[in-house]
């Protein structure tokens, strides 16, 4: 036991001789900052990355799926693609109709981009028309009743995706 006491005493004295209070504070400060940041990091990253993957519920092959609140067309989910991707052999339009939909899983509104998939004739499956937020033709950027296969190699419409862009801004 005495041996252990002596060893700790020697180490403590060595430490006291080699280091100052300021360096101890620096080390302790660094540790505290690091320790406080560690558990925050995944949360902070998640928040800054935006809610591109919000809580989900519902069947994306159904017209009732929350992201389709303004859709007018065939669901890519029923045509070999998904709500986020085009079926093989089609090209996603870079020019899109954008609106907002309320997610029932968390009660928040999200910005949804309805990117049409183009280059093959109309898919013909799961035709949905919900049109929430659809505007007349004179508001051309907010009407879904036109062919949005713009900027693609082919302007032939096949189906529609519904991609979450981010959270909608709401005045508090």
């Amino acid at each position: 036991m005495k041996l252990i006491d002596k060893m700790f005493e020697r180490k403590a004295r060595q430490l006291a001789q080699r280091s100052s209070r300021r360096s101890m504070l620096k080390g302790l400060g660094g540790f505290l900052v690091g320790a406080s940041a560690l558990p925050l990091l995944p949360v902070a990253r998640d928040a800054s990355a935006g809610p591109t993957t919000p809580l989900e519920q519902g069947d994306e092959a159904s017209c009732d799926y929350w992201r389709y609140c303004a859709i007018d067309g065939f669901l890519c989910s029923c045509c070999g693609g998904t709500a986020n991707s085009c079926p093989p052999g089609t090209e996603m339009s870079p020019i899109t109709w954008i609106g907002t939909c309320r997610n029932p899983a968390d009660g928040r509104n999200y910005v949804i981009s309805y990117n049409d998939c183009c280059g093959k004739s109309g898919c013909g499956a799961c035709l949905c028309q919900r049109d929430e937020g659809d505007r007349p033709h004179y508001r051309s950027d907010k009407t879904n009743d036109v062919n949005w296969c713009l900027g693609t190699t082919s302007s032939t419409y096949h189906c529609s995706s519904a991609i979450v862009v981010g959270l909608a801004f709401e005045d508090k």
């Binding site: 020019i95 899109t96 954008i98 907002t100 910005v111 862009v165 909608a168 801004f169």
Partner: peptide
């Protein structure tokens, strides 16, 4: 920033 980004997404980013 949040409002500006949202307005950009809604009224600009589609094109």
């Amino acid at each position: 920033d949040d409002r500006a980004r949202f307005n950009y997404q809604m009224f600009c980013s589609g094109c």
